[in-house]
Structures are given as C-alpha cells and as structure tokens.
Computed example of a mutant assay.
Amino acid sequence: MSWLFDPFSLEFVQRALLGGVLVSVLCAVAGTWVIVRGMAFLGEALAHGMLPGVALATVLGVPVLLGAAVSAIAMSLGIGALQRRAKLSYDTSIGLLFVGMLALGVIVISHAGSFATDATAILFGDILAIAPGDLVVLGLAAMIGIGAAILAHRPLVALAIDERVARVLGLAPRVAQAVLVGLVTLAVVASYQAVGSLLVVGLLVAPAVAARQWTARIATTMVLAAVISAAAVVVGLLVSWYAATAAGATIAAAAIAAAGVSWGLRAAVTAARRRTASPLPLAA
C-alpha cells in the first residue's frame, strides 16, 4: 500500500491535498445551491468571466486572486444591471457578459508577450503550486462560505421554493439571490488556483450532482458532496502522480466520473428495489 501514501509524503503534495479539500468544502456548499436553483450556467459564466481580471493581474504583477475577484464581482454586478436596466432575461444577461468577458480575457492574453505558461495556469490551474499563504486564503474563504450559507439558509430555501413565497414571508429574495451569487463567486475565485477557470465548474457542480442522487436534504447534500469532492481530489492527485497528467484536469475528470458512477449506482439500486418489490406471479 506504499504506492497510496508515497506521493503524499512530499510537502507540496500535502499542500495540494489540503488546498483541494478546502476547495471541495466551499464548492460543495455553493454547488448544492447551484444545483437546487438550476444555476450551473452562472457558475460557468463567472469562471470564464474572471479571465480578464486574472490576465490583467498577471501582466501588472498584482495577486491573481485579487484580479479574479474584481473581475468576477464586476461580472455579477453587470448581470444584475442588465436585468434591471436593459430588461434582459437572466440567461441572456449571463450569455452576453460571458462572451464579452471571455473575449476581453483572450485579447489581454494575446496582447501580452511570453504569456503561454501563465495562460495554461489560468485556464487549467496549478494545484501543485499552492503555497502556505494560499491555504490561509482558502481556509478563510471556506469559513466565509459556510457562515454565509448558515445565516442565509432560510431565505435561500424560500427562494428555491418560490420567490413570491419568500417575498410574502419577508425573507428578502433579492438579498438571498445576492448571497447565492456571492457564494458562487467566492467558490469560483477560490477554486481558480486548483483547477483553473475552465475546469472549476467540474468541482462546483459534479459532486453536488453525485450527492443529490442519494439525498434530498440540503445539509446532507452539502456534506456528501464535500466528501465526494475530497475523494476526487485524492484520486486525481494519485492518478496525475503516476500517469504524469495535469493535476487540475485529472481532479475535475475524477469529479465528473464520480457523478457518473453515482448515477449508475443509483439506477442499479432503484432497479433492484423494483425487482424485489414486484409481486410474484400466481401459480395456475
């Protein structure tokens, strides 16, 4: 069993594992609400929307997480502004800004010289390069995400049922929507170091989809999604170590595979229960 533990004897792999677990917890909290509200497109849009901020931060030499946060927040505010002022639908607002921000990011990358290595890290992440300071940031982000989800639990549940119900109960659906967008933004930005802007939705959505096959309770889904996501991090790091593949992409692929396996197991269990519950034919 030494092959299972040998990679994790190295300090940088240990940091990658701890960072991946923290990202898993945060993405499980935000991803559960993304699945419940059917907002996976928002997560994808924010992941690509932070590309220009990351690219500009890299060119200017400022912290990339700061650039990612500013860009993602600007996009989320832009979505709300287009909805209110231009009277566009939610999907249309996301689609316009999604393409616009992605194009702006590509323009910045193409204009800067000697940007190939940085562009790879931006798009696909570099979880093995997580530093001790990054772990502190991820820990704070996870605590903020969990705290926000706990404080806004009732408004978020009411919003998931019906916005009109939330308004009648005085639970401020607009505030709940802002909290949800903030959670997704926080998860996307925090996960950037691990899996990059292209693959972050894999950790945001896939573990929650896998967990949702087994439970309908919000809290239980979050816990199970965090466990599944952490397992995907372990499997992804091991596979990338021995197969010499990109760690972030392998982790995202493991999370997607977990969702497929969970769906298959659930279908098999349901079929077995139906066979067991079906009445035996009467003898002639």
Rank of each mutant, 00 (worst) to 15 (best):
P63A: 07
V64I: 13
V64K: 06
V64F: 05
L66Y: 11
L66F: 14
G67K: 11
A68H: 02
V70T: 12
V70E: 11
V70A: 15
S71A: 15
S71D: 05
S71P: 11
A72H: 14
I73W: 14
S76P: 10
S76G: 10
S76E: 08
G80F: 06
A81E: 12
A86M: 09
K87C: 10
L88F: 08
L88H: 03
S89P: 07
T92V: 14
I94P: 09
I94C: 09
I94F: 12
G95Q: 08
G95R: 03
L97T: 07
F98A: 08
F98D: 06
G100D: 09
G100A: 15
G100V: 14
A103M: 09
A103R: 04
A103P: 13
G105R: 03
G105Q: 09
V106N: 00
I107L: 15
I107N: 12
I107H: 11
I107G: 04
I107E: 11
V108A: 13
I109M: 12
I109E: 11
S110D: 15
S110P: 02
S110H: 12
H111V: 14
H111N: 15
A112V: 09
G113N: 13
F115N: 10
F115Q: 11
F115R: 06
A116R: 07
A116G: 09
D118M: 10
T120E: 13
F124D: 02
F124K: 04
G125W: 06
D126Q: 12
D126E: 12
I127W: 00
I127S: 03
A129I: 08
A129Q: 13
A129C: 07
I130T: 15
I130M: 13
I130R: 08
A131D: 10
G133Y: 03
G133F: 02
G133R: 13
D134F: 09
D134W: 06
V137Q: 09
V137K: 05
V137D: 01
L138E: 08
L138F: 13
L138T: 08
L140T: 11
A141L: 10
I144D: 04
I146W: 12
I146C: 14
I146T: 10
L151A: 15
H153G: 03
P155T: 03
P155Q: 00
V157M: 11
A158C: 06
L159Y: 01
L159W: 00
D162Q: 00
A166S: 14
A166M: 01
R167H: 12
V168L: 02
L169N: 03
L169T: 00
G170P: 07
L171S: 06
A172W: 01
P173M: 02
P173V: 07
R174N: 12
R174C: 04
A176S: 10
A176Y: 01
A176C: 04
Q177F: 15
V179K: 01
V181M: 15
V184C: 00
T185G: 10
V188F: 08
V188K: 06
A190Y: 02
A190C: 08
S191P: 02
Y192M: 11
Q193G: 07
A194V: 11
A194Y: 01
G196R: 02
G196N: 05
S197Q: 13
L198S: 11
L198R: 04
L199V: 05
